[in-house]
């Protein structure tokens, strides 16, 4: 009973491996590369000199007051795109409170006059450690600081934020978000 099944087991395993482990990824790759080349290669942001400035899907670390800051990243170093990780801190873990308090302190130090309550996504770690986005509330919260540091009006910065905002898909799916890297690139490129 066992012996009779050995040949089909081995042959079907080899055939199905070739089909699903080699042929299938190759077929998908060839379709993907020809139809959605940019996405298939990681949605890279290319500068004029051909250098890669990042990916529009992957966040970078910012703690300079002149830039928008993103989510807290639990990777080491922060926003390490070759070793993703969440904080995995439980809701009652004192380490979570320490992390949140440290971020609040840093935000307040960079912008002492801002008395509005801080949006939650700005003081918590993302799941991936690579979250490229913050909520609109988190972006709006930072506009006064960036305006002051850069000597721009809040209105000018608000326009850049709006340009880098992605609303819900069809007004339905997901949450409205601002891409932190893209808005910061736009800030650096902005001329009055």
């Amino acid at each position: 009973m066992i012996l009779a099944q050995i040949r089909p087991a081995i042959v079907s395993f080899v055939l199905l491996s070739a089909l699903t482990g080699i042929l299938y990824p190759l077929v998908v790759t060839s379709i993907a590369q020809s139809v959605f080349h940019k996405q298939a290669e990681g949605s890279l942001i290319l500068l004029k000199d051909g250098k890669v400035a990042g990916s529009s899907l992957i966040g970078q670390n910012f703690d300079d007051p002149k830039y928008f800051w993103g989510r807290i990243s639990a990777t080491s170093p922060a926003y390490n795109a070759s070793a993703s990780s969440g904080s995995n801190l439980g809701p009652t873990n004192p380490a979570l409170m320490d992390e949140v308090k440290a971020r609040i302190t840093a935000l307040k130090a960079a912008d002492p006059d801002n008395q509005t309550p801080i949006p939650v996504d700005l003081v918590t770690s993302s799941a991936s450690g690579l979250d490229p986005h913050v909520s609109l509330a988190a972006a709006f919260y930072q506009i006064p600081r960036i305006a002051r540091v850069r000597g721009l009006s809040q209105q000018e910065i608000k326009i850049l934020v709006d340009q880098n905002t992605r609303n819900r898909f069809l007004g339905l799916l997901g949450e409205p978000v601002v891409n932190v890297l893209l808005v910061n690139l736009a800030l650096d490129a902005y001329k009055k």
Partner: peptide, 9 residues
């Protein structure tokens, strides 16, 4: 929002 991504909420 701890351990969540902004785009998913």
């Amino acid at each position: 929002m701890e351990g969540k991504e902004a785009r998913f909420g």
